[in-house]
Design a protein around this nucleic acid. Structure first.
Lengths: 227, 227
DNA sequence: CGGAGAGTTGACTGTGTTCAAGCACCGTGG
DNA sequence: CCACGGTGCTTGAACACAGTCAACTCTCCG
């Protein structure tokens, strides 16, 4: 269970692709592992967070709750993603985090990790790039919700996630593990779950993809990319 | 015209609130000033940018164009805001920037400024916090567009901008200078300009605010804050 | 076997879009 | 001083995409 950072398959695809000795140094900072069951709140908006978590295995999402039970999912977190880097600069977050599947995470002391990053220019630079990428995806999601049809949004979200899975070396052969329900897709894209269901049905009817009970089959990836 | 950084009123409210000597050091990096007329494209998506600009005076916005002439405005830039900090980590941007009014900006060499930030931990930290705030506003905007009514969105956008103007010491007494047209509001919030116009009319009828030809009057700020 | 949770279906409603015309303001040039 | 044209704002009617509500089905799991 306690894999060394130097051999961690996740870190190879994470925001810090570093040399062996840096990874060894990083492992010294690792405070331990934590485990969460599926559908559990991992972090609640506004709490003081003592340590920074990295997802080793499992899926999660960042979200905010609104009056009236409405929810907006801000982004999805896959194995290798930090939850979240912003804790290096700030000691509490403006959103909550919930697990989609059961999760194992590596935990690092927030302040130690911040010092570690500040001391290694290479890593600090990679963290900056990571931050820019986060901004780019946020911008893309805003464009989706603001200016694209429900059909396009759903297609693009699924394609984005599959692409990220591939980049991380997660299995993507048909059918693949894909733990989002219709409510998650809807809350990420500003739709109702009923309408998200309608759109998914249309994708199935069009022979593009089929998503059912945590299993995704991609039939026509070119059609998705065209959106 | 060439005001020294140490006395610059903008820098007092910018992301780096620093001591006198740091500002003097910063001024040495300043490559010069640039001026743009209103409604001009300042930066086009994907170009290589040699230097980082700080807005000294005037308003601008970040946006992306989509096929079919659709446009999504990602954020507005006010005096004192950088365009944009992300250039410290990356040499080209994924969006375009356009001026709303005529603009004067201070320009800094991208690489020199990046080194300057990296060498001053205090400033690097402030840049990180700035980056976190940018993420928070992006999240807020996503929630607006995804889960709130057109009326709420417009009200919240105007309140956000007025609050930022106040924080920067810009005049906000009735009527105040406010250079957004209905198209800008619409493109920022995922609406059509026609519907944005209808919503503004409703705000006027409700006695909350009046926006007309670059002049904004705020009558009932409490009502806005309630949204 | 029964219950919970997720997904499906259909009818109805509503918010926001589309298209097209008209208006007001403003700078320009005669 | 007035005619001119451009741009941005206003208005109305018809439409469409997506939301709401409520009932029903399916599957998993105890």
């Amino acid at each position: 269970m306690p894999i060394s950072c130097a051999q961690c398959p996740r870190l190879k695809t994470a925001f810090y692709r570093s040399e062996h000795e840096t990874l060894v140094e990083m492992e010294a900072l690792r405070a331990g592992h934590r485990h969460f069951p599926a559908k559990r709140t991992i972090y609640r908006e506004g709490e003081i967070a003592a340590d920074m978590l990295m997802i080793f295995d499992g899926w999660a999402f960042r979200y905010k709750l609104l009056p009236g039970g409405r929810r907006q999912i801000l982004s999805f977190l896959l194995p290798g993603d930090p939850i979240c880097l912003q804790l290096l600069a700030v000691d509490r977050l403006a959103f909550s985090v919930q697990s989609l599947t059961s999760i194992t995470a590596c935990s690092f002391d927030r302040r130690c990790f911040a010092d570690f990053v500040a001391d290694h220019r290479q890593i600090a630079r990679q963290a900056d790039v990571f931050c820019v990428n986060a901004q780019v995806s946020a911008d893309e999601r805003l464009i989706d919700v603001g200016r694209r049809s429900a059909y396009d949004r759903v297609g693009r979200l699924i394609l984005e996630l599959v692409t990220r899975m591939e980049a991380k070396g997660l299995p993507t052969s048909n059918p693949m593990f894909f733990p989002l329900g219709q409510t998650h897709i809807a809350d990420a894209l500003g739709l109702t779950s009923i309408h998200a269901g309608r759109v998914l049905r249309r994708f199935r009817r069009d022979g593009v993809l089929s998503l059912h009970r945590g299993r995704l089959e991609l039939f026509d990836r070119a059609a998705l990319r065209r959106l």
